[in-house]
Design a protein around this nucleic acid. Structure first.
Length: 483
RNA sequence: GGCGCCGUAGCCAAGUGGUAAGGCAGAGGUCUGCAAAACCUCGAUUCGUCGGUUCGAUUCCGACCGGCGCCUCCA
């Protein structure tokens, strides 16, 4: 799968509502900005579904030969972080720091590749203030009667293009902000919110030429992404901006307005949005209380490989229901991949260098490339993977077959290993004492089997199973593993 | 009310204008002392319902039913 760099990758673009070839501004470089977590609490696995799809996107682009610069923001100042800090009786940063740390731990547990740069909003105040100043200068922002600064969407004719707002009507009687009277147009959104008592109480306030206050939610993404791509690449347009589907409106719509209002350049060329993780048909969320955090899964001993496989078995633009049954199925799939991997390593040297397996391997890699290039169709890639596993196992079962196992192993590892899907089972540490005991019992059982004392042999197996050890007799000896 | 998404076997889930991938679970078989693993065979005459377009629709159009999301700080 050494694709000529860079390969043609197509992705659905929310701007046009079509699958389009990815056309970076300056290939092979791709600038990728993904909306990260709000660190007011632990992120749940619904949040992580989005981060996992972005992880696959990043890896696939790199695999295709692109030089990806990945930026992810950390929202550490907004309504929720302030409220949570206040309730905890802490300063803002004291409250958010542990959750930022937890996010990184969860990210590592789920094997998500770290972004090249993480941008916490509170560390980009000068950039945000400068952006607001610029928007005020250009006359697309104004100071409201309440002292906050708003963006005037009337000054930005293409407002609503991303979310097809021109076709929308705001629901009559929908939530009306208390500061409504202060704005020129009810749809104008806050760039900078004048400090109030709660903000002061937790230290979420900054001085700015246009007044003491704090940034509106959308501001950070514009300010930070523009700052980072200017620094790294000297540009004002992102190649890809990704996030959850719920961010299309208003978050991303407002980011476009703010950014383009300031730079006059397109903000992002390709907008990519992932669907939700549901629980019995309803969006997983803190509000519904139907959520599970990454650390919950980790504490249950769930292998991250299973979570990754589970999510990759559904297309990123389709909603997926999280059920225990589905997770169990993914765990079983991961086990099977692990077995197959072990087998390939064991039988790598078998047979001649080509044959049926070489054909299967080629088809496998071609299918994976085709699937992922077509709007990151991971489910189809996974299907090709299991087709390959089954067909190759069949060949390996044939005493005369087996030629090409080394190639199969290499291809298998390229796709399922740490560079791409990253869905191979984690190594499980076994305490030396346990290992010694198991080895002794296995030897005893084989002794019993040798003397045809199957009753004793089965008793020992039951003993092992009771301790969570599964055994498997093979022509080359007895294998065991923790179940 | 506006905009958008979804409804495919027990469960999860791809997909195409020409007659349904893959995974898990289940049944039978090969192998095995027995298991396990692996492999083989079996499952939707059918893709929410009803119409329409078409030689032909699960795939396009319309209506309806059911579920869901967004509509100013939710991944």
């Amino acid at each position: 799968m050494t694709a000529p760099a860079p390969a043609p990758v197509s992705l659905f673009n929310t701007l046009t509502r079509r699958v389009e070839p990815l056309l970076p501004l300056a290939p092979p470089r791709v600038t990728l900005y993904t909306c990260g977590p709000t660190v007011w609490n632990y992120a749940h696995i619904g949040n992580f579904r989005t981060f996992l799809f972005e992880d696959l996107l990043r890896r696939w682009l790199e695999h295709a030969g692109y030089d990806v610069f990945h930026i992810m923001n950390l929202t550490d100042v907004d309504d929720r972080t302030i409220k949570a800090a206040r309730q905890a009786g802490k300063r803002l940063v004291e409250h958010t720091a542990p959750f930022t740390k937890a996010f990184f731990e969860d990210r590592d547990y789920l094997r998500i590749k770290p972004a090249h740069v993480y941008t916490p909003a509170t560390e980009y105040m000068p950039q945000m203030i400068a952006l607001v100043s610029k928007l005020l200068e250009r006359g697309v922002a104004y100071k409201g009667e309440d002292g906050s600064v708003y963006f005037a969407i009337a000054k930005f004719p293409t407002y609503g293009r991303l979310s097809q707002l021109d076709k929308r009507e705001i629901k009559v009687g929908a939530r009306v902000a208390s500061d409504e009277y202060a704005k020129g147009d009810p749809s104008d959104f806050a760039l900078w919110k004048k400090a109030d008592a709660a903000d002061e109480a937790v230290g979420a306030v900054w001085d700015a030429p246009f007044g003491r206050g704090r940034p509106g939610w959308h501001l950070e993404c514009s300010a930070m992404s523009l700052a980072e791509i200017a620094k790294c690449c000297g540009v004002q347009t992102l190649d890809i901006h990704a996030g959850g589907i719920d961010l299309i409106f208003p978050h991303h719509e407002n980011e476009i307005a703010q950014s383009e209002g300031a730079t006059g350049q397109p903000f992002a060329r390709h907008w990519v949005h992932g669907e939700f993780l549901n629980v019995r048909g309803t969006k997983m969320s803190k509000r519904h209380g139907n959520f599970l955090t990454a650390r919950d899964l980790r504490e249950q001993g769930v292998d991250a490989a299973a979570v990754r496989l589970l999510f990759f078995q559904t297309h990123y633009r389709a909603p997926v229901d999280f059920t225990d049954e589905a997770l169990e199925g993914a765990k079983e799939g991961v086990r099977r991949l692990g077995e197959f991997h072990e087998r390939l390593k064991r039988e790598e040297g078998r047979g001649k260098g080509d044959g049926e397996i070489a054909e299967l391997t080629k088809k496998f890699e071609d299918d994976v490339v085709t699937a992922l290039n077509d709007d990151l169709n991971a489910p189809r890639a996974v299907a090709a993977l299991f087709d390959f596993v089954r067909a190759t196992n069949r060949e390996l079962d044939n005493p005369k077959g087996g030629g090409g196992a080394a190639q199969a192993l290499a291809a298998f590892e390229r796709v399922t290993g740490a560079d791409l899907l990253d869905i191979l089972p984690s190594e499980r540490a076994v305490a030396p004492a346990l290992a010694r005991w198991v080895e002794e019992r296995v030897a005893a059982r084989n002794q019993a089997r040798k003397s045809k004392d199957f009753k004793a042999a089965d008793a020992i197996r039951a003993e092992l199973v009771a301790r969570g050890v599964e055994i498997e007799d093979t022509p080359t000896g007895t294998k065991w593993r923790l179940g």
